[in-house]
């Protein structure tokens, strides 16, 4: 084995280890029996999962996350999909092309800056400390993901399919329903998944906009790490990581089978 290949192997493995090991290392801690997050684990139990799903604050935060996540997903998917439909035409006037760049800005602006502004402005319209306020804040940062995903599939759709449908007698709305949206569905779904994930993971805007009643899971994890770390964190992390891996597998699998079908 040449020196080059050997060093490639070592470096590659080390980096993979650096990337993955932290995520794997905390998985067993979710099953500790102790109140400390230390190795070696004295005894195994599921008490922290029980805590996660039954203790008042945790349970409440999970429910809040689901409410806010679903609200964000619906709002962002609707706004993003409709907007992407308007932005898809490649020969748009300059105004719309500029707008396209602007739509991605919420991904770029530092969250704390946006949070300060939102807190100031939302307070004027009594939106702070409300579910609606948090959903709106999350939608602002989630909607670019929907726009990007939906726009990508829309631009991959051959215009001639829609022209064909029209020539065969389909009115514009029918073309949208029968051809455009079904073909854009994969992008809409992945946009929605991204939107939900963004909402689930959002902390900073939540800190600024939400009140104690809208404390989300991510927010709860933030203060748990900050104030008194407990193995419930490891249990929550376990749920997150396993969930991510499962979704990744499902997404990959469905893409794989779809491709296989097309090839056949």
């Amino acid at each position: 084995m040449s020196v080059l290949r050997f060093s490639k192997l070592i470096f590659g493995s080390a980096t993979v280890f650096f990337l993955i090991a932290p995520l794997i290392a905390i998985l067993p801690l979710a099953f500790t029996d102790s109140v400390f997050l230390n190795y070696p684990i004295p005894a195994y139990s599921t008490r922290w999962f029980v805590e996660l799903f039954t203790a008042g604050v945790w349970q409440r935060s999970i429910i809040n996350s689901l409410i806010i996540g679903c609200g964000t997903t619906v709002l962002a998917t609707f706004l993003g999909t409709v907007g992407a439909l308007g932005l898809r035409d490649k020969q748009l006037s300059l105004v719309l092309t500029t707008i396209k760049t602007v739509f991605l800005l919420p991904m770029v602006v530092p969250a704390v800056v946006l949070g300060v502004g939102m807190q100031l402005m939302f307070a004027r319209y009594a939106l702070t400390n409300t579910y609606l306020g948090v959903i709106i804040a999350h939608t602002v940062v989630a909607v670019p993901f929907v726009v990007v995903n939906v726009l990508a599939v829309l631009q991959g759709i051959d215009r001639r399919l829609e022209q064909a449908a029209a020539s065969l007698g389909a009115a514009p709305v029918t073309v949208l329903k029968q051809v455009t949206l079904p073909l854009a569905l994969p992008g809409i779904v992945s946009g929605a998944v991204f939107a939900f994930a963004t909402s689930l993971d959002e902390v900073v805007l939540t800190l600024f906009v939400a009140g104690p009643n809208q404390r989300t899971l991510a927010r709860q994890m933030f203060s748990t790490i900050r104030e008194n770390i407990s193995p419930a964190i490891a249990a929550a992390a376990f749920v997150f990581i396993v969930g991510t891996v499962l979704i990744a597998i499902v997404v990959n699998f469905s893409r794989g089978t779809k491709r296989a079908k097309e090839v056949r």
């Binding site: 980096t15 993955i20 991510a218």
Partner: peptide, 21 residues
């Protein structure tokens, strides 16, 4: 995959992992 998995994992989970480590 090693790059994408952390990218898809919650930021808080990753921070929590480092905190614990």
């Amino acid at each position: 995959g090693a790059v994408l998995l952390p990218l898809w994992t919650s930021l808080l989970v990753r921070t929590a992992a480092w905190f614990i480590l």
